[in-house]
Design a binder for these strands. Structure first.
Lengths: 191, 191
DNA sequence: TTGAAACTATACAGACCTGTATGTATACTA
DNA sequence: TAGTATACATACAGGTCTGTATAGTTTCAA
């Protein structure tokens, strides 16, 4: 096992634990134990648990961004279809057995102090979704983009939260249906 | 200070800490210290931290339910106005300086194990919102109530999450605007 | 084959956690 | 006024946490 892949292995195991149990609830000893490494090896690759957590947050940004763009840009052509494809992707995501809610919502919820580095990181990574929707809507001049973009973003966040709390049996489908209504409204009315 | 109010005092202080810092991050010693009581007094009123946490979750259900119904039923008459009033109330809530996100989203995020009592409690208390929206929509026969109710619930959850993560500068207003569009759509089309 | 870098195993320091034990003081009730 | 329930302060038991210290072992390249 090469040097680099050992570091990645530790990060993978740690990420899985952070995601499933939470950051505070996951101890360094447990990461060490489940990684089958020595504690000093972990502290050789990561200066502290703090650094490991920040690597975890960054890792999810990379993975999610890639996955998102792949899935959405695959088939959709028109802005309307691209926007609706977002909700199809959410549905796939929610259906996975490993689905465990949104890392950033959970992290922000666990470290609500607005000046905490984890909260700020989560907040920053989250901005990606709205930026993507905005970029798709840039193809639609003479549309009230701010209103539509906000509405869609709220539906995405709502669906993720509902999936996390299991308060809606089909959050992605319901969000998609609602999204269709407001997309058609704003596109048709040019306002 | 009477017996009963001392217990309430402890619960108030503890709730504030749980809400601001998180449940795991708040130690019993800190609750004791900020309550200006003896540790044994706390353990005399609550068998364990666990019992204190469950009391905290229940307390928020009571308060939020009351506040919600008061605020919403005050002025609104028609189903349409009652539904829109929900988002006005959210706007007031988000604007308060003590606003710290939704207790139940945060608790579920901190204890994601679906069999954990805190997760289940949070999930159950959360169901209240959808039930309320459903009850308002019961006044509207021949409307696709399931679709509209789901859409509105997702907008509510999305607005709360966006307010928590500060990813939208005006989550309640944007959610209200979007809600208006879908309400008018479903009510007008009778579907 | 020799030497440096990486990894391993174990122990432990110091801080924090929940919950208990003990004895004293206060306040209400009979 | 005597007795009882409640609250007090302090100490501590036993566990967990992060991070370090130390010494032995593997790996790999020169």
């Amino acid at each position: 096992m090469a040097n680099k892949s050992k570091k990645e292995h530790i990060l993978t195991v740690a990420s899985d634990l952070f995601n499933k149990k939470g950051i505070r609830a996951t101890g360094v000893d447990q990461v060490v134990s489940e990684s089958n490494i020595a504690k000093m090896t972990l502290y050789n690759h990561f200066r502290s648990k703090d650094e490991l957590v920040l690597a975890y947050l960054m890792k999810y940004d990379d993975e999610w961004r890639k996955r998102f763009e792949d899935s959405v840009n695959k088939s959709a052509k028109t802005p309307r279809d691209k926007l609706l494809a977002v909700f199809d992707m959410l549905g796939e995501w929610f259906g996975e057995p490993e689905f465990n809610g949104c890392v950033y919502i959970k992290t922000a919820a666990e470290f609500m102090d607005h000046s905490h580095p984890y909260y700020e990181a989560a907040r920053n990574y989250k901005a990606f979704m709205k930026k993507y929707i905005d970029s798709v809507l840039n193809e639609c001049p003479s549309v009230n983009r701010e209103a539509l973009s906000s509405g869609l973003s709220l539906l995405v966040e709502g669906a993720i939260t509902a999936a996390m709390l299991q308060t809606d049996p089909k959050p992605a489908e319901h969000a998609r249906d609602t999204a269709r209504v407001i997309i058609d409204y704003y596109l048709a009315n040019n306002k």
